[in-house]
Design a protein around this nucleic acid. Structure first.
Lengths: 214, 214, 214, 214
DNA sequence: TGATAATCGAGACGGTACGTCCTGTCTTTCA
DNA sequence: TGAAAGACAGGACGTACCGTCTCGATTATCA
């Protein structure tokens, strides 16, 4: 492939050992108590082998995330046709994941890592269902089925769902069994009372189509 | 003061110098490149003087936050009676703050700090307007004025607003000038189409009273 | 003494432990297999404590030498009045020291160290008897007692004796039991035949006083 | 070349490049700052190619020395019949070499190398004139011409001359323009006063034949 | 008015980790 | 099939901080 390339090729064994060690250590210790030396020694690898391929700890963690070594599965909403039920079931699964022992700490680790590595943020949300990925896709399907108001920005919707999860994890919001359903309902039906009851002080806004961001 | 207390009392000059140095360094370097030694030397203070009064770097940062040394002002929604306008104006101010140079980095620093210090998360959201504080209060006023649907959880609403801000900062969501208005409208009116248009595939849900969390 | 000196003072325990560890390791491993990390760990000391007080490994070794931790005793010629006997006895002691197991390696270590630290060369020769020190003193006494030819440079004489030892150690010259006596005799009486036999081709040099170096 | 030998033969170009690179680096950096990697990269050669033919850095250096890449010329005493003049002129040339800029450092490098490679010591002295080589030969000629006292050990004489050079280089003895002449005279005529003046306190030693070493 | 006790700036201490450099071996590709 | 290129495990380098401790000086209370 790479013509003219000479010398030994990258050791896949070393790469795998590094990613495995990193995942294991992150789970056990949390992001900021994991060290490059710790990873190297756990992986039975020279430090230079890590630095040769990744510029920083957060880059290694990012690759762990991409490889699926940190978050075991992705959380995609199903498509039963019922957007409310699908989102509720999806959000419930995400909340259940957070609630499992050690997972909240792990997610906070990933948030810390995301602070100095945008890629981690992207893949974190990707894993949880958002990003161009599956959550957005499901929302677009719903929009096509006229289950969302025309003009609703799918990006803003996914941002909100990710925000719900982030604030839960980062701000340690106490959990409630009804949360998944309640949040989905809130997002879909809104906080304001039914349309006719709209307060007089707020002038009825023209329902001009809202241009999606970007 | 404290009966039986002997010896020199805590130096307010040192305390102030430490908080000032910390703020300045956080702004310049970001949370994780600030060190206790750096703070001490910048403040012209012995390291022990810091450790005597705070257990960790994040505790010092937390106190900076409380003192208002890090976020210059709090962001409280006004109360003009129009909840939509008030929230929009408030969210716009928050977004403007984020957009100012250096502020996004600062907020990410605080997110990193919040990962290992829950207090920082609390005060961060407090500063931005949420927590038991002013945002929730404004929402409660709106609820009392029947501008929110009965049974809407104010806690969940504030979580969502905080989530919107967190995902913007942490996930580096690109900004749009219309964001503040659009998010507020989305939260208040929901993503689903007007009631009559509700899809047949989604069975009309019983309007059972939603128990508020906790 | 040092006015205005504040803060903890240098730990003599740490200093002693470092010098002891260094000596022990040099003896066991030889100069270039001794590492700063090895010294620190053997001494139960942080690496920084070494670097705080010494700029390099060779500086630590130099101080070991000065403290007498490496060469157990100094080798000073006695003064019985008989310069030949005194020098012979002294040189024999030095040769005996070299011949003892491990000592030749140790001396070669010190030579290696002397390459990048002139101080080590000085103290090494000092320990063995030369330098402004005792050997030179003994030679000056001999000169005063007219046991040396007037005008003989004491510096050159000590250089020669040190050279004899250095070449023995560095070049691994095989030892001979008679060496001490033979070298002293050679130095004192010279290699040329008795004066009358001086070759015609070499014009008799005027015995003008030779100015000592420096 | 070697019968039955198949495959590519040793690349003389690589060998030459390695020796050239080593010499150049030693001159520029000094022995212990030269690395195998540095040699390989300077020579445009794989590290393995070096390790295939030499076991260690000092072995490469030794071969450089043998090839004459490090010390440009050998220093052999002439034979005009006048041993004093010949040795003086020879020693002066050696001292002049040392005095040239960079040469003292180079010689100290070689001393460092000699510490862990006896061969280097041998060839170093060989280059300077000693060893079974030319200096010893010249001395033997002088002995045959009765310009040396019978029984004088040529080995010890060469050791002394090498010692003079070594102590000059290693101990950084300050140079004096008269040194070459003075040292030769000292070695040949000795430090003691003329025979009649021998001090009473020193008992006249029997002129027993001195057995040569080995 | 001392003695006592706490704080302060300073900084040394035993450690851990950093990111770089080098060693000596092994592996791949090219000529 | 030898040599270049270069990846690899390992280990030392010298630096930066950690959190604790020890100084000498200063400041406040209590006896």
């Amino acid at each position: 492939m790479t013509a003219g390339r000479r010398g030994a090729t990258r050791s896949q064994a070393a790469r795998a050992a590094i990613l495995a060690a990193t995942s294991s250590l992150i789970e056990r210790l949390g992001y900021d108590r994991v060290t490059m030396e710790g990873i190297a020694s756990e992986a039975g690898v020279g430090k230079q082998t890590i630095y040769r391929w990744w510029p920083s700890k957060s880059a290694v963690v990012a690759e762990c995330l991409i490889e699926g070594a940190l978050l075991p599965e992705t959380y995609a909403p199903h498509d039963t046709g019922d957007i409310v039920a699908d989102l509720t079931e999806w959000l419930q699964r995400v909340f259940d994941f957070i609630a499992a022992p050690g997972h909240e700490t792990m997610l906070r680790s990933l948030i810390a890592a995301a602070v100095d590595n945008p890629e981690i943020g992207e893949h974190l949300t990707g894993r949880l269902g958002a990003s161009p990925d599956v959550l957005a896709e499901r929302l677009r399907t719903a929009a096509a089925a006229r289950q969302l108001r025309p003009g609703t920005s799918v990006e803003r919707l996914t941002d909100m769902f990710m925000g719900i999860v982030l604030s839960r994890v980062l701000l340690r919001t106490p959990a409630d069994p009804d949360d998944a359903r309640a949040f989905v309902e809130l997002v879909l039906t809104g906080a304001a009372p039914h349309r006719p009851t709209r307060p007089a002080s707020a002038p009825p806004r023209s329902s001009t189509a809202r241009q999606p961001r970007r």
